[in-house]
């Protein structure tokens, strides 16, 4: 039994939407980071699916770049959270409100 590419693309689109909605709805910064990871991995899944469809190795190579960037981004993000934590306790976006707007 084979699973067609459309299913993978649908799954990726669903993952991407869940990530995007989660980022906009959730208030915990750590969960927001996880949502960004979900979105990036949805993009990775799309790349791999298309690479297989097109029989082109380029799309698979891209995934490595995206993974590395995602890792670098998380490192900086967690660093920023720690820097804020050291001044105050809690990682809820609503508590970070010195700047208006």
């Amino acid at each position: 039994m084979t699973v067609s590419a459309a299913w993978y693309l649908t799954l990726a689109a669903a993952m991407f939407s869940i990530g995007a909605i989660g980022l906009l709805v959730r208030r915990n910064v750590l969960v927001m980071f996880m949502c960004v990871e979900l979105m990036l991995n949805a993009a990775n899944l799309t790349f791999v699916t298309f690479a297989r469809e097109l029989n082109d190795v380029g799309g698979q190579a891209v995934v490595f770049f995206v993974l590395v960037v995602a890792a670098a981004e998380v490192v900086v993000g967690l660093g920023i959270i720690v820097a804020i934590y050291r001044r105050r306790l809690g990682a809820t976006a609503d508590d970070i409100h010195v700047l208006k707007g």
Binding site: L40, F47, T49, L54, G59, V62
Partner: peptide, 17 residues
């Protein structure tokens, strides 16, 4: 910024497809 770059990557993926 992370949100926008995730959107950007997905855009690249669809363009690639």
């Amino acid at each position: 910024g992370a949100f926008s770059s995730a959107i950007f990557v997905y855009g690249i993926a669809l363009t690639y497809g």
